[in-house]
């Protein structure tokens, strides 16, 4: 492998990892606060990509790249805000009807409703847009870029990585600096104690779902911009990878989720480079198992109390 290919693959890995990281954040936030593996989260990401497709292609009638920078920024801002808000609300609704009634039920009950919700979301999209891949407008010209040595770096990759890193940092600041962030952290640590200290548990959990789902919505927009298509089954695979990323990094830990996402991106890209693309899932999971054998709570996870 020459230096050019190596650099190119590094960029590819960062871009892929950024998308996984965005989805993984939602997983890890929900897990952190109510210890639920929210298997419908991947499908929230999928619905997000369809919402953004609807806005861009059907509502704005866009087909391809926008060359006017001001217009491009404007449309992108609208797309992200719209998709994030819509998916955030969808997340809140899912929590309200499928998870909240089961908050004191056996732990596996909400896991099964999560699977049910995932089927429901897939079927709704399938009935709405048909069961086939759909073209999604790539607003940023995917061929435009600049050269680093002999490698070609596309602006779209830079954009995807910047969006992901920006949202991760923003989330981190929100959780560590704001009042609501503190409420979330305390609810995650001890729900009853937090309630006694005046934290409104229902609102806090709803906000967590809103933020997590909004991030998945953002990932949905990125899916359309970067890959240029969407499909009603992408949520399942995306969710699986993101869940793996969240656990690899230490589930419940937002920095860990980001780290896990990038790690998996790197593993996959270099498995492909080596010609083992058809083994990439096996490689990802083998490495995950190895990591967990030596660090049973993931790369950055804290050993939890006996409840785990």
């Amino acid at each position: 492998m020459d230096v050019g290919t190596l650099t190119q693959q590094l960029v590819n890995a960062l871009t892929l990892g950024a998308i996984y990281a965005l989805i993984a954040l939602g997983y890890t936030m929900v897990y952190g606060i109510i210890e639920l593996i929210n298997f419908a989260h991947g499908d929230v990401f999928m619905v997000g990509s369809f919402v953004s497709l609807w806005l861009l292609a059907d509502f704005f009638g866009l087909r391809g790249p926008i060359n006017n920078p001001a217009e491009l920024v404007g449309v992108l801002v609208v797309a992200f805000v719209f998709s994030m808000v819509v998916m955030g609300l969808v997340g809140v609704v899912i929590e309200r009807f499928a998870y909240r009634p089961l908050r004191n039920a056996p732990r596996l009950a909400p896991l099964i409703t999560a699977i049910g919700v995932s089927f429901i979301l897939q079927n709704i999209i399938q009935i709405w847009r048909g069961p086939a891949q759909l073209n999604s407008p790539q607003l940023i010209n995917v061929q435009a870029g600049f050269r680093v040595g002999s490698a070609e770096v596309h602006w779209i990759s830079v954009f995807v990585i910047a969006i992901a890193v920006g949202l991760i940092i923003g989330l981190h600041l929100f959780i560590s600096r704001t009042r609501m962030g503190r409420a979330m952290r305390s609810t995650a640590l001890d729900r009853e104690a937090a309630q006694l200290m005046g934290v409104d548990i229902n609102t806090t959990i709803a906000v967590t779902f809103f933020i997590g789902s909004a991030l998945a919505g953002a990932a949905g927009v990125v899916q359309g911009l970067y890959y240029g298509y969407t499909f009603f089954t992408i949520g399942f695979q995306g969710g699986l990878k993101a869940f793996t990323a969240a656990v690899l990094g230490g589930i419940g830990n937002t920095t860990g989720a980001a780290l896990g996402g990038f790690t998996i991106g790197f593993i996959e890209v270099f498995a492909s480079q080596a010609g083992y693309a058809n083994w990439s899932e096996a490689i990802v999971f083998s490495i995950l198992i190895l990591v967990l054998v030596f660090r049973p709570t993931g790369l950055l996870g804290q050993p939890t109390a006996e409840r785990g």
């Binding site: 492998m1 693959q9 890995a13 892929l16 890959y227 996959e268 890209v269 480079q273 058809n278 899932e281």
Partner: peptide
């Protein structure tokens, strides 16, 4: 020159293509 298997779960062919291009 190269043969890859990428199932329905793959949505990112970029890394495969980068390797093949070389």
């Amino acid at each position: 020159v190269k043969r890859d298997g990428a199932g329905a779960n793959v949505s990112d062919y970029t890394s495969l293509l980068t390797a093949a291009k070389a």
